[in-house]
């Protein structure tokens, strides 16, 4: 084993490369002042567009509101008309129901008026009276919040 000789590893010719230890800064597209200025400018532009949008939304809200206000009397009139019609229907139903009962007079308790001092006055019914002749389920539908009705 005499042919194997020792060889010391040495640096390459000219020595090793230098170690880059200096900071390499990123490439700058904008300066700081430009960034702040751009931010302010874009915000101002966006605010202006937002303002325009707000104006339009307000205008639409006013239009919607005035439409609702305009048709409110109509809706109320329809409701009142239906109310009075239903009162009449209730009266007819009562007459039909109590036709065979002795001494019963429609709108009274066995001939005794509800208000003695004003027998012919219009009496607003209570809720139960309004739904008196219907079944309980349709009354509950109106009276309570019913899930998945």
């Amino acid at each position: 084993m005499d042919s194997v000789t020792k060889r010391q590893e040495m640096p390459p010719d000219g020595g090793y490369k230098t170690i880059p230890f200096k900071r390499v800064p990123a490439r700058q597209f904008f300066s700081g002042y430009a960034l702040i200025g751009g931010y302010l400018g874009m915000t101002a532009g966006a605010a202006y567009i937002y303002y325009l949008n707000c104006l339009q939304v307000q205008k639409e809200e006013i239009e919607l509101r005035s439409g609702r206000i305009a048709i409110e009397p109509l809706l109320k009139a329809e409701r009142d008309r239906e109310y009075l019609k239903q009162l009449r229907r209730n009266r007819d139903e009562e007459a039909k129901l109590m036709a065979n009962v002795e001494g019963w007079k429609v709108g009274t308790l066995y001939g005794e008026p509800i208000f003695k001092t004003r027998p012919d006055a219009f009496i607003e019914p209570k809720f139960h009276e309004y739904y008196m002749h219907t079944d309980l389920w349709s009354q509950k539908l109106r009276q309570y919040f019913v899930w998945l009705s």
């Binding site: 239906e82 229907r89 809720f127 739904y131 219907t134 079944d135 539908l141 109106r142």
Partner: peptide
């Protein structure tokens, strides 16, 4: 026809 048909639901 035991019961009368119910009134319109928002008429009260």
């Amino acid at each position: 026809d035991g019961y009368a048909p119910p009134p319109v639901i928002d008429s009260f």
